[in-house]
Computed example of a mutant assay.
Amino acid sequence: MSRYAAVKRDTKETEIEVYLDIDTPGNVEVSTPIPFFNHMLNSMLFHMNSSAKIIAKDKENYDDHHVVEDTAIVLGEAFKEALGNKSGIRRFFSIFTPMDEALVLVAVDISGRGMGIIDLDLKREEIGGLSMENVPHFFRTFAYNAGITLHIRKFSGENEHHIVEAAFKGLGISLYEASRIVNNRLPTTKGLL
């Protein structure tokens, strides 16, 4: 039985729709007005082994901030909803993801507590319409709304496309592995995640 969610957010600034199935590898469709963001979300969802659809519309066209932030909110909510009661999940996972000269650590704890600690040391202004200041903002906002603890840290890298892509791929892999059902108990001594 697949774990999935469909979440929509409609504000004066954006309209975001997300469908996410975390147990069925399949089609990934991403459409936002930000080309590099589309590329990163596609990479992340592909490495999550998910079926997914993200449609994001920018109603005001100020800049990329609202689309990135609201997509992170809705995608985070969808992931949290798809997890269900979290019974039997692995909960923790971490990976060093290389991409050519770049090496990025991503560590995930499906803790029920949203927190993102992001250290990518990005210097470039933007890539393909995505402001580099919005990369850590996306990760933090996603983590908060997904109810996960997320650490992302660059260990090496000069090409910022490679650094950012390693982070998104590492997040996809980590979310997939941490959300796998490995037994029939809740993975906490507290009795609640």
Results as ranks from 00 to 15, higher is better:
9 R>L: 15
24 T>W: 03
167 A>N: 11
39 H>K: 00
35 P>M: 13
18 V>F: 03
91 R>W: 06
100 D>M: 06
40 M>L: 14
187 P>A: 06
54 I>C: 01
4 Y>N: 10
50 S>N: 09
135 V>A: 06
93 F>W: 13
146 A>S: 12
50 S>C: 13
69 E>Y: 03
47 H>V: 09
126 E>I: 05
34 I>H: 07
103 L>Q: 13
118 I>M: 02
111 S>K: 10
72 A>D: 08
136 P>I: 10
187 P>F: 08
140 R>I: 08
64 D>V: 09
50 S>W: 08
102 A>Q: 06
14 T>K: 07
182 V>H: 03
6 A>E: 15
191 G>D: 10
83 L>H: 11
99 M>C: 09
171 L>I: 04
163 I>M: 02
182 V>T: 12
80 K>P: 11
73 I>E: 11
104 V>T: 04
16 I>N: 04
5 A>N: 11
158 E>Y: 11
99 M>D: 05
48 M>D: 00
153 R>Y: 12
74 V>Y: 01
113 R>F: 04
19 Y>S: 10
7 V>E: 08
83 L>G: 14
34 I>P: 07
101 E>Y: 10
131 S>G: 13
150 L>G: 11
163 I>W: 06
44 M>D: 09
70 D>M: 13
18 V>C: 03
64 D>M: 07
182 V>R: 04
46 F>S: 12
193 L>S: 15
11 T>Q: 07
94 S>L: 03
125 E>P: 13
141 T>N: 08
13 E>P: 01
68 V>A: 06
119 D>P: 02
140 R>M: 13
93 F>C: 00
77 E>K: 11
116 G>A: 06
50 S>E: 05
170 G>C: 07
74 V>S: 02
53 K>L: 15
168 F>G: 01
47 H>G: 00
47 H>K: 05
140 R>T: 10
16 I>R: 01
62 Y>W: 05
8 K>Y: 02
122 L>I: 14
37 F>K: 05
16 I>A: 03
80 K>Y: 05
165 E>Y: 11
184 N>C: 03
82 A>D: 02
98 P>M: 14
191 G>V: 10
27 N>A: 14
129 G>M: 05
138 F>Y: 14
129 G>E: 05
77 E>H: 02
63 D>G: 01
1 M>A: 07
149 T>R: 05
164 V>T: 13
